[in-house]
Write a protein that binds this DNA or RNA. Structure first.
Lengths: 210, 210
DNA sequence: ATCAGCGTTAGCCTAAAGGACAATGGCAGG
DNA sequence: CCTGCCATTGTCCTTTAGGCTAACGCTGAT
């Protein structure tokens, strides 16, 4: 079944179309073999256990278990697992999480065929792969301070259009605290008001719609 | 080449992976034939002219020429053209534009294989196809007042974090006017402040990131 | 044990936002 | 012709936001 020298792959994405596109792309290489597919994070962990692929391509945003959570679960069990995260590019916030959780690579879904193949080979060899712009943004934003969990919590409520008072009420503290958090958020994001903070946060992938 | 009874398709998407996924999905049906692909709106118009497909699957958001623009261009030249728009679901604002421009269908990219096939058959027969939830939202928001072009212009600046005064300066009117527009926007969107307006507008697809 | 970062509370002050209401000119549709 | 919608400019008033500064208890790292 699996010939020596083959790279055995697990493809994880909740969109059927994307999954099929990836598989179709990979099939054109004789040394690639897609041994399994999964459509959510939980399934990804199971499939990984069953098939022990050489490399796993995994979407970051998925129902049930997010890509980063699945990645963490897999690497807790198989520390040597090599996983390349896929994203439609929501921002660079996910990158930190993904790399922190032990991702070996990070690709945008508008990736060209050659780049995908190269990345997989690179990661299979034990290396890492980050696209041009992503690696650049990583170092850029590494100097810019990152938000604390609490600040993110506040930011999400800000994005919903809540006032400081309403935020305070939801999170059970005074509006002074809400103001303090918002002030810190504005400064860290380098914006002047909460509206700018929301769009900036969305561009960076810190908060999302819904 | 093309057997009678075949449905000839044009697939348009700027993402290689999605394009390949769609083609792979469609290939499994014997009566479907993908006669051409395009990776942007301008190319889509050319390909349509060359191949005159029975049905065109087209992404809404693309570089060069957006899906809606390409759709309009195609239908200006070929009024009988049947086009199904694809989206990752940014909101329902695009739906109105797409349907107004003469789209025969509207599909989310997380579409199941069967639904895609059904939609194509339906549209090929001269019918229309809208997914469950989309058709519902169409009637919902048809009663909610829509923003005027000027208001959208203001809203985009609001989303950038500009103050009323700054908006007034950019659009060359007084801050009274800016306030008036913002007030109308808040009321039409059913929110209480500009921050809520931004997220609401993004959910509806009225404004976008970048 | 000290220090830094975090979360929390608090004051004061100016600028901005938002609600309510009113009025003008322009322009398209009935 | 006139009515309605749009864009524009106002006023008055209340609430909110945001800048600046300062504190306190807590936790984790050095």
């Amino acid at each position: 079944m699996t010939k020596p020298g083959q790279i055995r792959l697990l493809v994880v994405d909740d969109h059927l179309v994307v999954r099929m596109g990836l598989v179709a792309l990979l099939k054109r290489r004789k040394d690639f073999e897609v041994v399994a597919e999964a459509e959510n994070g939980a399934q990804a962990v199971e499939r990984f256990r069953e098939h022990r692929p050489d490399v796993c391509l995994m979407d970051i945003r998925m129902p049930k278990l997010s890509g980063v959570q699945a990645l963490a679960a897999i690497r807790a069990e198989f520390p040597e697992a090599r996983v390349i995260m896929l994203t439609t590019y929501d921002g660079d916030s996910d990158i930190h999480g993904a790399l922190a959780a032990g991702a070996s690579g990070y690709l945008l879904k508008d990736v060209e065929g050659e780049e995908l193949v190269f990345a997989i080979r690179e990661v299979h060899r034990g290396g890492r792969y980050l696209p041009e712009g992503v690696a650049q943004r990583l170092t850029e934003h590494s100097k810019s301070p990152q938000l604390t969990p609490r600040e993110i919590e506040v930011l999400e409520l800000v994005a919903k259009g809540l006032s400081n008072k309403q935020i305070a009420s939801v999170l059970n503290f005074t509006d002074f605290t809400a103001k303090a958090h918002v002030r810190n958020i504005l400064e860290k994001l380098g914006v002047e008001d909460r509206t700018g903070a929301v769009t900036e946060a969305m561009q960076r992938g810190i908060v999302h719609l819904e």
